[in-house]
């Protein structure tokens, strides 16, 4: 039983990061109805930027802020250069294009920072907290991760529910035509969605980097976890992404604890396959929906 609790506790901070990546995927989905398979690649890239900042300035907070800004910019750049021209003309092409961006980002990062895994220093202690006579599988750093994630999620929730910008974004996402008629600048909202997604992913990258290491490919697996969480959560729901992101983190932690961390991708794959098997249409609506 203590094992179970320990594994569970140990999964929260990973789950938070998965939740952030899933959030990024959902934000993009909500704005442009597509999955950005380069999302985690963008996060990898901005994490390298953060690493550079941290190494030169020594400040973790500055690194985080710079990563967010870089994520914002990268999101906008990818949207303008790649997504906007392709998204309406060729849906297969749009998917492929995001993979193109992923490949280019990974190679670019490899060129600039090399292929060897690099460590990322934590701002606070990352060893288990000693409390009530035992060492718990949660560190100060894990708590920091959870706090940052919670702050970001709350901020996004407030943005979407309480601000004009958030309302306009939702309108643009759910019914662009109507939104356009009621004076919402739809295109600007789509860009905003991509920008916020980029920043959210960037935070996720910086948070996970000290725990894993960072290399151009090291976030690939995170993409699978985040996609799984986002899809199970319905791809459209911020709350779903957060809930199932953390849930995925917990499941992975349990699987790693009881068997072997190598099995985690298989479990994620099985979860994803089962979910798609049970509701294959996801949020697309059903076959007969086409008006004939």
């Amino acid at each position: 039983m203590t094992n179970f609790v320990d594994y569970l506790l140990g999964g929260f901070s990973n789950g938070a990061v998965i939740a952030l990546m899933a959030l990024a995927i959902v934000l993009v989905w909500r704005s442009t109805r597509m999955v950005n398979f380069a999302q985690v690649g963008q996060a990898m890239f901005t994490t390298y930027v953060a690493l550079t900042v941290q190494q030169s300035s020594g400040s973790w907070v500055l690194a985080l802020v710079v990563a967010m800004a870089a994520g914002l910019v990268l999101g906008i750049v990818v949207f303008f250069l790649v997504i906007r021209p392709v998204k309406n003309s060729d849906s297969t092409g749009a998917i492929i294009a995001t993979f193109g961006v992923l490949i280019a980002l990974q190679a670019g990062a490899g060129m600039i920072w090399g292929g060897d895994p690099q460590g990322f220093l934590t701002p606070v202690d990352n060893s288990g907290i000693e409390f009530a006579g035992r060492i718990w599988p949660i560190s100060l750093y894990d708590i920091l991760v959870l706090v940052v994630t919670a702050a970001l999620v709350i901020g996004l929730t407030l943005l979407f529910t309480k601000t004009n910008l958030g309302l306009s974004m939702r309108a643009a996402a759910f019914n662009p035509e109507v939104a356009r008629l009621s004076g919402v600048r739809v295109n600007r909202m789509l860009i905003t969605g991509w920008a916020i997604a980029g920043a959210t992913g960037a935070v996720g990258g910086v948070l996970i980097a000290p725990v894993s290491t960072i290399s151009p490919n090291s976030f690939d697996i995170l993409l699978v976890f985040a996609f799984t969480a986002a899809v199970i959560g319905g791809l459209d729901s911020l709350i779903g992404a957060v809930t199932f992101g953390i849930g995925t983190g917990l499941v992975i932690s349990l699987v790693s604890g009881y068997s072997d961390s190598g099995n985690a991708p298989i479990v994620a794959l099985v979860l994803l396959a089962l979910n798609l098997l049970l509701k294959p249409d996801g949020v697309f609506g059903h076959h007969g929906a086409r008006s004939v």
Partner: peptide, 22 residues
């Protein structure tokens, strides 16, 4: 065959990443 666009890409991405694990 039951999936559309990004779902299929995402699922098969999982398969590709899962090969070493398997």
């Amino acid at each position: 065959a039951r999936l559309k666009g990004p779902y299929l890409a995402g699922l098969t991405l999982g398969v590709a990443v899962g090969v070493p694990a398997i």
